[in-house]
Design a protein around this nucleic acid. Structure first.
Lengths: 188, 188
DNA sequence: CTCTTCATACCGACCGCGCGGTACGACGCA
DNA sequence: TGCGTCGTACCGCGCGGTCGGTATGAAGAG
Protein backbone atom coordinates (compact mmCIF):
# COMPACT_ATOMS: atom_id res chain seq x y z
CA UNK A 1 0.00 0.00 0.00
CA UNK A 2 1.40 3.38 -0.96
CA UNK A 3 1.87 6.30 1.39
CA UNK A 4 -0.93 8.14 -0.34
CA UNK A 5 -3.40 5.29 0.15
CA UNK A 6 -2.48 4.86 3.79
CA UNK A 7 -2.97 8.56 4.44
CA UNK A 8 -6.35 8.62 2.73
CA UNK A 9 -7.52 5.53 4.56
CA UNK A 10 -6.49 6.87 7.97
CA UNK A 11 -7.91 10.30 7.23
CA UNK A 12 -11.28 8.92 6.16
CA UNK A 13 -11.60 6.89 9.32
CA UNK A 14 -10.67 9.78 11.59
CA UNK A 15 -12.81 12.33 9.74
CA UNK A 16 -15.81 10.01 9.99
CA UNK A 17 -15.21 9.36 13.65
CA UNK A 18 -14.44 12.83 14.98
CA UNK A 19 -15.14 15.23 12.18
CA UNK A 20 -12.81 17.07 9.85
CA UNK A 21 -11.90 20.03 12.02
CA UNK A 22 -11.52 18.02 15.19
CA UNK A 23 -9.00 15.74 13.52
CA UNK A 24 -5.42 17.04 13.54
CA UNK A 25 -2.81 16.41 10.90
CA UNK A 26 -0.64 14.89 13.61
CA UNK A 27 -3.31 12.28 14.34
CA UNK A 28 -3.59 11.41 10.68
CA UNK A 29 0.13 10.86 10.16
CA UNK A 30 0.33 8.87 13.37
CA UNK A 31 -2.57 6.61 12.39
CA UNK A 32 -1.21 6.21 8.87
CA UNK A 33 2.30 5.45 10.07
CA UNK A 34 3.86 8.22 8.01
CA UNK A 35 5.28 11.65 8.78
CA UNK A 36 4.16 15.16 8.05
CA UNK A 37 6.78 15.50 5.37
CA UNK A 38 5.33 12.50 3.60
CA UNK A 39 1.79 13.76 3.82
CA UNK A 40 2.59 17.25 2.61
CA UNK A 41 4.62 15.78 -0.21
CA UNK A 42 1.46 14.29 -1.70
CA UNK A 43 -1.21 16.74 -0.51
CA UNK A 44 -1.17 20.50 -0.69
CA UNK A 45 -3.13 20.98 2.48
CA UNK A 46 -5.51 19.31 4.91
CA UNK A 47 -8.32 20.70 2.82
CA UNK A 48 -6.89 19.15 -0.32
CA UNK A 49 -6.98 15.79 1.41
CA UNK A 50 -10.69 16.18 2.10
CA UNK A 51 -11.29 17.16 -1.50
CA UNK A 52 -9.61 14.01 -2.81
CA UNK A 53 -11.97 11.94 -0.72
CA UNK A 54 -14.89 13.86 -2.15
CA UNK A 55 -13.78 13.65 -5.73
CA UNK A 56 -13.21 9.90 -5.61
CA UNK A 57 -16.62 9.25 -4.04
CA UNK A 58 -18.42 11.52 -6.47
CA UNK A 59 -16.81 10.10 -9.58
CA UNK A 60 -17.55 6.55 -8.52
CA UNK A 61 -21.17 7.04 -7.56
CA UNK A 62 -22.00 9.22 -10.55
CA UNK A 63 -20.47 6.77 -12.99
CA UNK A 64 -22.41 3.84 -11.56
CA UNK A 65 -25.68 5.76 -11.51
CA UNK A 66 -25.33 6.85 -15.14
CA UNK A 67 -24.60 3.30 -16.24
CA UNK A 68 -27.83 2.08 -14.68
CA UNK A 69 -29.87 5.08 -15.82
CA UNK A 70 -28.82 4.46 -19.42
CA UNK A 71 -29.64 0.77 -19.36
CA UNK A 72 -32.77 -0.46 -21.09
CA UNK A 73 -34.51 -1.81 -18.01
CA UNK A 74 -38.06 -0.63 -17.33
CA UNK A 75 -38.06 2.70 -15.52
CA UNK A 76 -39.12 1.50 -12.05
CA UNK A 77 -36.46 -1.19 -12.15
CA UNK A 78 -33.81 1.31 -13.12
CA UNK A 79 -34.78 3.50 -10.17
CA UNK A 80 -34.79 0.48 -7.91
CA UNK A 81 -31.35 -0.59 -9.07
CA UNK A 82 -29.94 2.92 -8.60
CA UNK A 83 -31.10 3.08 -4.99
CA UNK A 84 -29.80 -0.39 -4.18
CA UNK A 85 -26.48 0.47 -5.77
CA UNK A 86 -25.94 3.75 -3.97
CA UNK A 87 -26.85 2.15 -0.65
CA UNK A 88 -24.58 -0.84 -1.20
CA UNK A 89 -21.60 1.27 -2.24
CA UNK A 90 -22.20 3.73 0.60
CA UNK A 91 -22.22 0.91 3.12
CA UNK A 92 -19.19 -0.75 1.55
CA UNK A 93 -17.16 2.34 2.41
CA UNK A 94 -19.28 3.80 5.15
CA UNK A 95 -16.58 6.05 6.57
CA UNK A 96 -16.06 7.78 3.26
CA UNK A 97 -19.80 8.13 2.80
CA UNK A 98 -20.17 9.63 6.26
CA UNK A 99 -17.46 12.18 5.58
CA UNK A 100 -18.95 12.86 2.19
CA UNK A 101 -22.36 13.76 3.54
CA UNK A 102 -21.22 15.56 6.66
CA UNK A 103 -18.16 17.63 5.95
CA UNK A 104 -19.28 19.48 2.88
CA UNK A 105 -19.50 22.93 4.52
CA UNK A 106 -15.88 22.63 5.63
CA UNK A 107 -14.48 22.41 2.13
CA UNK A 108 -12.91 25.54 0.69
CA UNK A 109 -15.57 27.60 -1.05
CA UNK A 110 -14.05 27.17 -4.49
CA UNK A 111 -14.02 23.40 -4.09
CA UNK A 112 -17.58 23.48 -2.80
CA UNK A 113 -18.63 24.96 -6.11
CA UNK A 114 -17.08 22.09 -8.06
CA UNK A 115 -18.61 19.45 -5.84
CA UNK A 116 -21.99 21.10 -5.77
CA UNK A 117 -22.09 21.24 -9.55
CA UNK A 118 -21.51 17.53 -9.89
CA UNK A 119 -23.91 16.67 -7.07
CA UNK A 120 -26.50 18.75 -8.88
CA UNK A 121 -26.21 16.83 -12.10
CA UNK A 122 -26.55 13.61 -10.11
CA UNK A 123 -29.65 14.90 -8.39
CA UNK A 124 -31.21 16.16 -11.62
CA UNK A 125 -30.50 12.97 -13.46
CA UNK A 126 -32.38 10.87 -10.92
CA UNK A 127 -35.12 13.45 -10.52
CA UNK A 128 -35.76 13.31 -14.24
CA UNK A 129 -36.36 9.58 -13.98
CA UNK A 130 -39.02 10.23 -11.36
CA UNK A 131 -40.58 13.03 -13.39
CA UNK A 132 -40.64 10.79 -16.45
CA UNK A 133 -42.49 8.14 -14.48
CA UNK A 134 -44.94 10.73 -13.23
CA UNK A 135 -45.71 11.92 -16.76
CA UNK A 136 -46.18 8.33 -17.86
CA UNK A 137 -48.62 7.71 -15.03
CA UNK A 138 -46.44 5.00 -13.48
CA UNK A 139 -45.78 7.16 -10.41
CA UNK A 140 -48.22 9.39 -8.55
CA UNK A 141 -47.81 13.00 -9.62
CA UNK A 142 -49.23 14.87 -6.64
CA UNK A 143 -45.79 15.39 -5.10
CA UNK A 144 -42.92 17.38 -6.67
CA UNK A 145 -40.17 15.18 -8.11
CA UNK A 146 -37.50 17.39 -6.54
CA UNK A 147 -38.97 16.92 -3.10
CA UNK A 148 -39.16 13.18 -3.63
CA UNK A 149 -35.47 13.05 -4.50
CA UNK A 150 -34.44 15.26 -1.60
CA UNK A 151 -36.51 13.12 0.72
CA UNK A 152 -35.21 9.73 -0.29
CA UNK A 153 -31.60 10.72 -0.80
CA UNK A 154 -31.73 12.51 2.53
CA UNK A 155 -32.55 9.17 4.10
CA UNK A 156 -29.62 7.55 2.31
CA UNK A 157 -27.23 10.31 3.36
CA UNK A 158 -27.91 9.57 7.02
CA UNK A 159 -26.90 5.94 6.74
CA UNK A 160 -23.63 6.57 8.52
CA UNK A 161 -25.50 7.81 11.57
CA UNK A 162 -27.08 4.50 12.43
CA UNK A 163 -25.90 1.63 10.25
CA UNK A 164 -23.30 -0.65 11.81
CA UNK A 165 -21.69 -3.48 9.96
CA UNK A 166 -22.18 -5.82 12.90
CA UNK A 167 -25.94 -5.39 12.72
CA UNK A 168 -28.38 -7.91 11.35
CA UNK A 169 -28.88 -6.45 7.90
CA UNK A 170 -26.42 -6.58 5.02
CA UNK A 171 -25.90 -3.62 2.73
CA UNK A 172 -27.82 -5.45 0.02
CA UNK A 173 -30.79 -6.00 2.32
CA UNK A 174 -30.85 -2.38 3.45
CA UNK A 175 -30.60 -1.28 -0.16
CA UNK A 176 -33.58 -3.37 -1.19
CA UNK A 177 -35.65 -2.14 1.73
CA UNK A 178 -34.81 1.46 0.87
CA UNK A 179 -35.63 0.98 -2.80
CA UNK A 180 -38.91 -0.68 -1.87
CA UNK A 181 -39.85 2.15 0.47
CA UNK A 182 -39.17 4.68 -2.26
CA UNK A 183 -41.08 2.90 -5.01
CA UNK A 184 -44.03 2.15 -2.75
CA UNK A 185 -44.28 5.78 -1.74
CA UNK A 186 -44.60 6.61 -5.45
CA UNK A 187 -47.23 3.98 -6.24
CA UNK A 188 -50.31 5.70 -7.71
CA UNK B 1 -33.71 40.61 24.53
CA UNK B 2 -31.29 39.38 27.15
CA UNK B 3 -27.59 38.84 26.61
CA UNK B 4 -28.09 35.11 26.83
CA UNK B 5 -30.73 35.08 24.11
CA UNK B 6 -28.65 37.24 21.81
CA UNK B 7 -25.67 34.95 22.22
CA UNK B 8 -27.70 31.83 21.52
CA UNK B 9 -29.33 33.37 18.48
CA UNK B 10 -26.03 34.49 16.99
CA UNK B 11 -24.34 31.19 17.79
CA UNK B 12 -27.08 29.13 16.18
CA UNK B 13 -26.88 31.13 12.98
CA UNK B 14 -23.11 30.89 12.77
CA UNK B 15 -22.96 27.22 13.71
CA UNK B 16 -25.52 26.40 11.03
CA UNK B 17 -23.70 28.47 8.45
CA UNK B 18 -20.08 27.50 9.03
CA UNK B 19 -20.13 24.63 11.46
CA UNK B 20 -19.35 24.51 15.16
CA UNK B 21 -15.58 24.18 14.99
CA UNK B 22 -15.13 26.71 12.23
CA UNK B 23 -16.98 29.34 14.24
CA UNK B 24 -14.83 31.26 16.72
CA UNK B 25 -15.99 32.67 20.03
CA UNK B 26 -14.86 36.09 18.80
CA UNK B 27 -17.27 35.85 15.85
CA UNK B 28 -20.12 34.92 18.13
CA UNK B 29 -19.63 37.81 20.53
CA UNK B 30 -19.20 40.21 17.64
CA UNK B 31 -22.40 39.06 15.95
CA UNK B 32 -24.28 39.10 19.24
CA UNK B 33 -22.98 42.54 20.19
CA UNK B 34 -21.60 41.37 23.52
CA UNK B 35 -18.13 40.72 24.89
CA UNK B 36 -16.25 37.58 25.80
CA UNK B 37 -16.66 38.41 29.46
CA UNK B 38 -20.40 38.53 29.01
CA UNK B 39 -20.52 35.27 27.13
CA UNK B 40 -18.39 33.38 29.63
CA UNK B 41 -20.45 34.80 32.45
CA UNK B 42 -23.45 32.83 31.21
CA UNK B 43 -21.82 29.83 29.54
CA UNK B 44 -19.09 27.62 30.91
CA UNK B 45 -17.54 26.95 27.53
CA UNK B 46 -18.17 26.98 23.81
CA UNK B 47 -19.26 23.39 24.17
CA UNK B 48 -21.75 24.31 26.86
CA UNK B 49 -23.30 26.76 24.43
CA UNK B 50 -23.81 24.01 21.87
CA UNK B 51 -25.33 21.80 24.51
CA UNK B 52 -27.91 24.42 25.47
CA UNK B 53 -29.02 24.57 21.85
CA UNK B 54 -29.35 20.80 21.83
CA UNK B 55 -31.21 20.56 25.09
CA UNK B 56 -33.78 23.17 24.11
CA UNK B 57 -34.46 21.52 20.74
CA UNK B 58 -34.74 18.05 22.23
CA UNK B 59 -37.07 19.05 25.03
CA UNK B 60 -39.35 20.89 22.67
CA UNK B 61 -39.61 18.21 20.01
CA UNK B 62 -39.96 15.36 22.47
CA UNK B 63 -42.72 17.12 24.39
CA UNK B 64 -44.72 17.81 21.24
CA UNK B 65 -44.29 14.28 19.93
CA UNK B 66 -45.46 12.72 23.21
CA UNK B 67 -48.53 14.94 23.29
CA UNK B 68 -49.58 13.74 19.86
CA UNK B 69 -48.65 10.11 20.51
CA UNK B 70 -50.86 10.07 23.60
CA UNK B 71 -53.85 11.60 21.88
CA UNK B 72 -56.80 9.39 20.95
CA UNK B 73 -56.58 9.87 17.20
CA UNK B 74 -56.42 6.74 15.03
CA UNK B 75 -52.89 5.42 14.77
CA UNK B 76 -52.11 6.46 11.17
CA UNK B 77 -53.34 9.96 11.89
CA UNK B 78 -51.16 10.19 14.98
CA UNK B 79 -48.13 9.19 12.92
CA UNK B 80 -49.09 11.66 10.24
CA UNK B 81 -49.46 14.47 12.75
CA UNK B 82 -46.11 13.66 14.35
CA UNK B 83 -44.27 13.89 11.05
CA UNK B 84 -45.99 17.13 10.06
CA UNK B 85 -45.20 18.60 13.45
CA UNK B 86 -41.53 17.72 13.50
CA UNK B 87 -41.09 19.04 9.96
CA UNK B 88 -42.92 22.28 10.71
CA UNK B 89 -40.99 22.96 13.90
CA UNK B 90 -37.69 22.04 12.25
CA UNK B 91 -38.36 24.48 9.43
CA UNK B 92 -39.56 27.18 11.82
CA UNK B 93 -36.08 27.22 13.36
CA UNK B 94 -34.07 25.70 10.57
CA UNK B 95 -30.70 26.93 11.82
CA UNK B 96 -31.15 25.23 15.15
CA UNK B 97 -32.35 22.06 13.44
CA UNK B 98 -29.35 22.08 11.13
CA UNK B 99 -26.96 22.40 14.04
CA UNK B 100 -28.89 19.76 15.92
CA UNK B 101 -28.53 17.15 13.24
CA UNK B 102 -25.02 17.99 12.14
CA UNK B 103 -22.89 18.87 15.12
CA UNK B 104 -23.62 15.95 17.36
CA UNK B 105 -20.16 14.33 17.12
CA UNK B 106 -18.59 17.59 18.29
CA UNK B 107 -20.33 17.59 21.65
CA UNK B 108 -18.31 16.48 24.65
CA UNK B 109 -18.62 12.73 25.06
CA UNK B 110 -20.45 12.98 28.38
CA UNK B 111 -23.02 15.32 26.87
CA UNK B 112 -23.37 13.03 23.87
CA UNK B 113 -24.50 10.31 26.22
CA UNK B 114 -27.26 12.47 27.64
CA UNK B 115 -28.47 13.59 24.24
CA UNK B 116 -28.28 10.12 22.77
CA UNK B 117 -30.38 8.72 25.59
CA UNK B 118 -33.18 11.19 24.98
CA UNK B 119 -32.98 10.79 21.21
CA UNK B 120 -33.28 7.08 21.75
CA UNK B 121 -36.50 7.33 23.70
CA UNK B 122 -37.86 9.59 20.96
CA UNK B 123 -36.90 7.07 18.31
CA UNK B 124 -38.33 4.13 20.22
CA UNK B 125 -41.57 5.88 20.96
CA UNK B 126 -42.27 6.51 17.30
CA UNK B 127 -40.98 3.11 16.26
CA UNK B 128 -43.45 1.49 18.63
CA UNK B 129 -46.28 3.27 16.86
CA UNK B 130 -45.13 1.75 13.58
CA UNK B 131 -44.70 -1.69 15.12
CA UNK B 132 -48.19 -1.47 16.63
CA UNK B 133 -49.62 -0.68 13.21
CA UNK B 134 -47.74 -3.61 11.71
CA UNK B 135 -49.12 -6.02 14.28
CA UNK B 136 -52.62 -4.68 13.66
CA UNK B 137 -52.21 -5.20 9.92
CA UNK B 138 -52.66 -1.52 9.14
CA UNK B 139 -49.06 -1.27 7.95
CA UNK B 140 -47.09 -3.75 5.88
CA UNK B 141 -44.87 -5.88 8.09
CA UNK B 142 -42.17 -7.02 5.66
CA UNK B 143 -39.80 -4.24 6.68
CA UNK B 144 -38.32 -3.74 10.17
CA UNK B 145 -39.90 -0.87 12.12
CA UNK B 146 -36.49 0.37 13.21
CA UNK B 147 -35.32 0.66 9.62
CA UNK B 148 -38.50 2.49 8.68
CA UNK B 149 -37.92 5.06 11.41
CA UNK B 150 -34.25 5.51 10.58
CA UNK B 151 -35.17 5.93 6.95
CA UNK B 152 -37.88 8.53 7.35
CA UNK B 153 -36.29 10.51 10.14
CA UNK B 154 -33.06 10.48 8.16
CA UNK B 155 -34.92 12.30 5.41
CA UNK B 156 -36.22 14.83 7.93
CA UNK B 157 -32.78 15.38 9.42
CA UNK B 158 -31.42 16.49 6.07
CA UNK B 159 -33.99 19.26 5.67
CA UNK B 160 -31.44 21.95 6.44
CA UNK B 161 -29.34 20.82 3.49
CA UNK B 162 -31.84 21.83 0.83
CA UNK B 163 -34.87 23.64 2.21
CA UNK B 164 -34.85 27.41 1.80
CA UNK B 165 -37.54 29.65 3.19
CA UNK B 166 -37.78 31.58 -0.05
CA UNK B 167 -38.74 28.46 -1.98
CA UNK B 168 -42.20 27.61 -3.17
CA UNK B 169 -43.25 25.27 -0.42
CA UNK B 170 -44.23 26.24 3.12
CA UNK B 171 -43.18 24.17 6.11
CA UNK B 172 -46.72 22.89 6.42
CA UNK B 173 -46.76 21.73 2.79
CA UNK B 174 -43.41 19.99 3.10
CA UNK B 175 -44.59 18.36 6.32
CA UNK B 176 -47.70 16.98 4.67
CA UNK B 177 -45.75 15.68 1.68
CA UNK B 178 -43.29 13.97 4.00
CA UNK B 179 -46.02 12.41 6.10
CA UNK B 180 -47.79 11.21 2.96
CA UNK B 181 -44.61 9.65 1.60
CA UNK B 182 -44.08 7.81 4.87
CA UNK B 183 -47.62 6.51 5.24
CA UNK B 184 -47.81 5.47 1.59
CA UNK B 185 -44.59 3.52 1.88
CA UNK B 186 -46.21 1.58 4.73
CA UNK B 187 -49.49 0.86 2.97
CA UNK B 188 -50.02 -2.92 2.82
C1' DC C 1 -33.44 58.58 54.65
C1' DT C 2 -28.49 57.62 54.35
C1' DC C 3 -24.52 54.99 54.43
C1' DT C 4 -22.24 50.53 53.98
C1' DT C 5 -22.00 46.06 52.16
C1' DC C 6 -22.05 42.70 48.92
C1' DA C 7 -23.60 39.91 45.06
C1' DT C 8 -24.41 39.96 40.30
C1' DA C 9 -23.40 41.48 35.60
C1' DC C 10 -20.26 42.52 32.59
C1' DC C 11 -15.64 44.23 30.44
C1' DG C 12 -11.36 43.47 27.68
C1' DA C 13 -6.34 42.88 27.86
C1' DC C 14 -3.94 38.99 28.18
C1' DC C 15 -2.23 33.93 28.12
C1' DG C 16 -0.51 29.35 26.87
C1' DC C 17 -1.22 25.83 23.79
C1' DG C 18 -1.41 23.33 19.85
C1' DC C 19 -2.70 23.89 15.37
C1' DG C 20 -1.52 23.74 10.05
C1' DG C 21 2.25 24.42 7.53
C1' DT C 22 7.41 24.87 6.15
C1' DA C 23 12.56 24.52 5.53
C1' DC C 24 16.00 21.79 4.83
C1' DG C 25 18.71 17.73 5.13
C1' DA C 26 19.14 12.67 4.24
C1' DC C 27 18.61 8.59 1.80
C1' DG C 28 18.03 5.57 -2.18
C1' DC C 29 17.88 4.69 -6.86
C1' DA C 30 19.12 6.00 -11.81
C1' DT D 1 25.50 13.42 -9.45
C1' DG D 2 20.61 14.46 -9.63
C1' DC D 3 15.96 13.83 -8.62
C1' DG D 4 12.05 12.11 -6.27
C1' DT D 5 10.76 10.70 -1.58
C1' DC D 6 10.40 11.31 2.60
C1' DG D 7 11.97 12.67 8.09
C1' DT D 8 12.40 16.20 11.67
C1' DA D 9 12.84 20.31 13.92
C1' DC D 10 10.74 24.24 14.00
C1' DC D 11 7.44 28.53 13.28
C1' DG D 12 3.81 32.06 13.70
C1' DC D 13 -0.81 32.60 14.47
C1' DG D 14 -5.14 32.55 16.33
C1' DC D 15 -7.74 29.90 19.09
C1' DG D 16 -10.61 29.04 23.66
C1' DG D 17 -10.37 30.52 27.92
C1' DT D 18 -8.95 33.58 32.20
C1' DC D 19 -8.79 37.05 35.53
C1' DG D 20 -8.45 41.47 37.85
C1' DG D 21 -11.33 45.05 37.75
C1' DT D 22 -15.70 48.12 37.58
C1' DA D 23 -20.66 49.55 37.50
C1' DT D 24 -25.15 48.84 39.36
C1' DG D 25 -28.55 48.17 42.54
C1' DA D 26 -30.82 45.58 46.30
C1' DA D 27 -30.64 44.67 51.32
C1' DG D 28 -29.56 45.83 56.21
C1' DA D 29 -28.02 48.87 59.89
C1' DG D 30 -28.41 53.22 62.27
Amino acid sequence: MTVKERVVRAAVRLFAEKGFEATTVREIVEAAGVTKGGLYHYFESKDDLLFEIYAAMLRMQTRRMVTIAESDLPLPERLHAIIVDVVVTSIADLDAATVFFQSFPLLEKSKQVQVRAERRTYHERVRDLVAEGQRAGIFRADVPADLVINYHFGAIHRLGMWYHADGELSGEQVGRHFADLMLRSLRP
